[in-house]
Write a protein that binds this DNA or RNA. Structure first.
Lengths: 161, 161
DNA sequence: TTAAATATTTGAAAAGTTCCAAATGCTAAT
DNA sequence: ATTAGCATTTGGAACTTTTCAAATATTTAA
């Protein structure tokens, strides 16, 4: 199927750019893109072939993607190769990683808020005010993230059953 | 104020890391961190001094931060230097940029959905299904992003008036 | 237990990014 | 208009990240 090859190359490129835009290794995006549109699990060698890259980095990145819960190893009986496929609800899992990063900001705000508490000057008062704003912002964001995750769980069930 | 210098260096470092985690130039984070805790607008030379870096990259990054709406130029009468300060609701504005990036994903899903529509195979059917999921995910996310932005506008008013 | 198949790690090369110093370009005051 | 005080751009150096090829380690089947 000619079209399929072309589509694969395009989606792989788009995912690479998307991942890169969020500060992730573009190869992560390439592998995720490939696996998302692959009905059958893909071996390391399959990926090597389709992405036209050497095995080293692909092995590394697959390990990292598995750690993040974005892809899974699949056992294929009678075959000693590792096969990979996109995790169930891979988008939700990817976003969970983002949420974690955003939560770091709450802690940063709290850290400087308490530092400013123990100081006493006009500058310290200003810093306190700014850090309170920052803390409120990321706490509210976290609330809405949780609401979204809940809503998505619901919708995901609906769409996949 | 000794403590203040130390606090500045720390917050600058934390923001650099945070920005880097989201795929942005760490220098952006350093400058944003500095401006967020600075009550008074800072000239390019002030920033150069406090960040102990040369002027070239600071000029560049300030321009980019202004384009993104994260910092603003301030006019100080009788002084021909440019002064910068953190934008009002800088956190909200930073998140608006994130939201834009996430919206790209809706378009990507739509693109491959329509490509898969014009194909006809078991593989195409699978791709269609995956892209429908992707589209739903990012559409729902966008909905919740909008809800959050609204709620934050409300809260921000409350906190700053 | 061994050999074959596969995955992972490593060291070096290539590519990309960030930074500085110096040159250039603007702007505003005289 | 000219000049002084800035900001911006540019070219190349330093650093970081990514990639490959080769070596090593692991797993499985016989």
């Amino acid at each position: 199927m000619e079209k399929n090859i072309d589509l694969t190359q395009q989606i792989v490129a788009d995912f690479a750019e998307g991942y890169s835009n969020f500060g992730l290794n573009p190869l992560m995006g390439r592998i995720v893109g490939l696996l998302i549109i692959s009905k059958d699990p893909q071996s390391l060698d399959d990926i090597v072939e389709k992405l036209e890259m050497s095995k080293g980095p692909i092995s590394q990145i697959c390990r990292r993607l598995k750690e993040r819960g974005l892809i899974e190893k699949v056992w294929i009986p009678g075959d000693r190769k590792d096969y990979y496929q996109a995790a169930d609800d891979i988008f939700g899992k990817a976003y969970a990683n983002q949420i974690n990063k955003m939560q770091d900001n709450i802690e940063i705000a709290e850290k400087y808020l308490s530092m400013a508490q123990s100081m006493d000057s006009e500058d310290a008062a200003f810093i306190k005010q700014q850090m309170k704003l920052m803390k409120s912002f990321y706490e509210l964001m976290d609330e809405y993230n949780k609401k979204f995750v809940e809503a998505w769980e619901e919708k995901h069930k609906e769409l996949t059953e």
